[in-house]
């Protein structure tokens, strides 16, 4: 949770202007190229954040995504200062009702239950609605025997729902227990940033865990760790590459290869018949 403010500060801002300075390599880039290229810096390949809808467009076959539970609306169970205000601001900024979009779509023709978090909505934090939508999605995947893909981008549990938010970690993980018992496969895609209670629940529980290059993935944020241990953090600490090296991820996949890689994984996870030239070979 506590790293949210830091992430916000580091969050890339894409101005409306024609030209912008890449926040990673500082090269001047033509804004339009960025938007046409899955929001990758054409010079250094830096992965700018995608909204939930952009991510769905990237991963799903065109027009195949059918949203579920679109109208789950957050309340303010704790009457937490300024929470309703934050909801309203995030709603008008992202045009989303909450920090996750769920539904069923096709990935290279394979029907898949898909949940995508949107970091733009209160830092992609997990409150009651995120927990409920993700849980319903897992339950749907379980009943319909659809493979599950959850794309995380999250500042952790939403502080404004405190203990009720925290319990969403248990709720989503409980649903994943049943999915696993039912032998329905689950791919977790971790994107920049995935932190706190989200990492400590469904984002870490994929049968296969994959991440985008250089994504910050952690339990405790770098600032909290620095304050606790009072020493400098190693180079590249808590990046996707660091997690891969430490055995916590299966692969780091650049954005242009994501869809094809996920489809390849799904074909193995579902043991689909080998088709085309591979079958003949």
């Amino acid at each position: 949770m506590s790293i949210l403010s830091r992430i916000r500060r580091r969050r890339p801002v894409i101005p409306d202007g024609l030209w912008m300075k890449c926040q990673s390599c500082e090269e001047i880039i033509y804004t339009k190229t960025l938007y046409e290229g899955n929001k990758l810096c054409p010079k250094c390949g830096y992965h700018y954040p995608l909204s939930a809808r952009e991510r769905i467009a990237l991963l799903c076959d065109e027009g195949s995504f059918v949203e579920r539970d679109a109208y789950l609306i957050p309340l303010d169970p704790l009457q937490f200062p300024e929470y309703l205000d934050k909801q309203e601001k995030s709603r008008s900024k992202t045009k989303e009702y909450e920090a996750v979009v769920t539904g069923v779509g096709r990935i290279e023709g394979i029907a898949t239950a898909i949940g995508v978090m949107d970091f733009g909505y209160i830092g992609g934090t997990m409150g009651s609605v995120v927990g409920e939508k993700v849980t319903r999605l897992i339950e749907h995947a379980c009943t319909e025997r659809l493979p599950l893909l959850v794309v995380s981008a999250s500042g952790g549990v939403r502080m404004q729902e405190s203990i009720i938010g925290l319990m969403q970690m248990a709720k989503t993980s409980a649903a994943l227990y049943r999915l696993r018992q039912a032998r329905v496969p689950y791919i977790s895609l971790l994107t920049n940033p995935t932190t706190g209670g989200t990492t400590a629940s469904y984002a870490s529980l994929g049968d296969v865990n994959i991440a985008e290059p250089k994504a910050l993935i952690c339990f405790a944020g770098p600032r909290v760790i620095k304050q606790t241990i009072r020493q400098e953090l190693p180079e590249g600490f808590q990046t996707a590459e660091f997690l891969l090296e430490h055995g916590l991820l299966d692969m780091v996949v650049p954005r242009p290869e994501l869809k094809a890689t996920i489809a390849r994984l799904l074909r193995y996870l579902l043991n689909l018949p080998v088709a085309g030239p591979e079958a003949a070979a």
């Binding site: 970690m169 400590a200 870490s204 952690c218 339990f219």
Partner: peptide
């Protein structure tokens, strides 16, 4: 919240317990 804890998968350890 420490370096070793992150390296050895603090988040994964907790997540697995919840499941």
């Amino acid at each position: 919240p420490g370096i070793g804890a992150e390296e050895r998968g603090q988040a994964e350890a907790i997540a697995v317990n919840l499941r």
